[in-house]
Nucleic acid binder design. Structure first.
Lengths: 202, 202
DNA sequence: GTCTATAAACCGATAGAC
DNA sequence: GTCTATCGGTTTATAGAC
């Protein structure tokens, strides 16, 4: 029994190393340009060995996305319940941009990606996505109720906009320019997201 | 001489049909997923015939991007000189989102794309990109000078943010939801871009 | 479980006939 | 210029030895 558990733990650890590599490659090149050979090379094992752990490239990417959503849920649930909803939403955006700059944020599954269809058919992924959406949706509603978020925007629009900031190419271009530290970029994305480009009357 | 000109016009027309198909496929699947076979199939000619017009897939995509920037310059130069800089910038964002929703806006050449390197080495592309950047940069500076755009944001940040809205996945998801007309989506993206998600004190 | 070797499919690009 | 046919390379996925 204990032997079994140890072996399972080892396998779990190995698969976690694999998924970290997948997340990194997914962020670097996206699903289509990521090759299974490349993943195997980064992990340091043969491609055929990878297929003993994950039955297909799609499942491999799905497992990496599930891992990302699990980490997202951790961050969400670590927010102080007493904090203002708008502050909690801002914290999530900051965390997501930080992950993006670290090269650990896979690109959003585009509406026209082949991966997207596989993901929405993968229950573990959808379950977690629903949980993330419900958490953020609740915060958005609360923020609008207390007048902190523009009530003329539907919750849907706010939610998608928050999601999209996690993969905003603006952070890549700002990083490429070399004129900003990572934390400055995080602040700039958060500020333009919530306050916009136009001047705010103070 | 006239025969020559007519033939050239015909070729020009044919190549424009090709580039429109490329722009559409570039918007639909991105550079890597776009196949030369697919382009030929949409146009209705054989792949080998395509290579008589464009020497490589990269050049094909580059020509399509040049065509896009030429249309962008047309829109930019059609703006009334007397209009407020912020209004002109908003008009460009609206036009770009509209093109995106029509499926005619190729994805931004990512910082890590193979296409990007080919593009920055392609002078006709770079020349037009510089002209677009100079126009928009002038408007941004003017808008900040008259207090319409947040002066704490560098021109670089504003410029990249405006560019990025052209390919914002938020518009795709809103379209997918079916709850909004195209023009409503255009307004929502423009409003969140310039005014942000948070409430504005009026 | 890990490896090497390979199958099957696809893609970019070219050859050569018309 | 357009076509068919094909080359060379890559990719996902599998077979079989250890």
């Amino acid at each position: 029994m204990e032997r079994m558990s140890l072996k399972q733990q080892q396998q779990r650890l190995r698969e976690d190393v694999i998924l970290q590599a997948v997340n990194s490659l997914l962020a670097e090149k996206g699903y289509d340009l990521m090759t299974v050979d490349g993943v195997a090379a980064v992990v340091g094992i043969a491609k055929a060995s990878l297929y003993k752990h994950f039955e297909s490239k799609e499942r491999l990417a799905a497992a990496a996305m599930v891992r990302l959503l699990d980490r997202t849920l951790e961050i969400i649930e670590s927010q102080a319940a007493s904090a203002a909803p708008l502050d909690k939403l801002t914290s999530i955006v900051r965390w997501a941009v930080r992950e993006h700059l670290r090269g650990q944020m896979p690109a959003l599954p585009s509406t026209r990606s082949a991966l997207r269809e596989a993901l929405i058919a993968h229950k573990p992924y959808v379950d977690r996505l629903i949980r993330v959406t419900e958490h953020l949706g609740g915060w958005i509603e609360a923020a609008q109720h207390e007048g902190a978020i523009n009530p003329r925007l539907s919750g849907e629009v706010v939610l998608y906009t928050v999601f999209a900031r996690a993969c905003d190419p603006v952070s890549d271009f700002l990083k490429l320019s070399g004129a900003y530290s990572d934390e400055e970029i995080v602040e700039l994305i958060a500020e333009t997201c919530f306050s916009g480009l136009a001047t705010r009357p103070s």
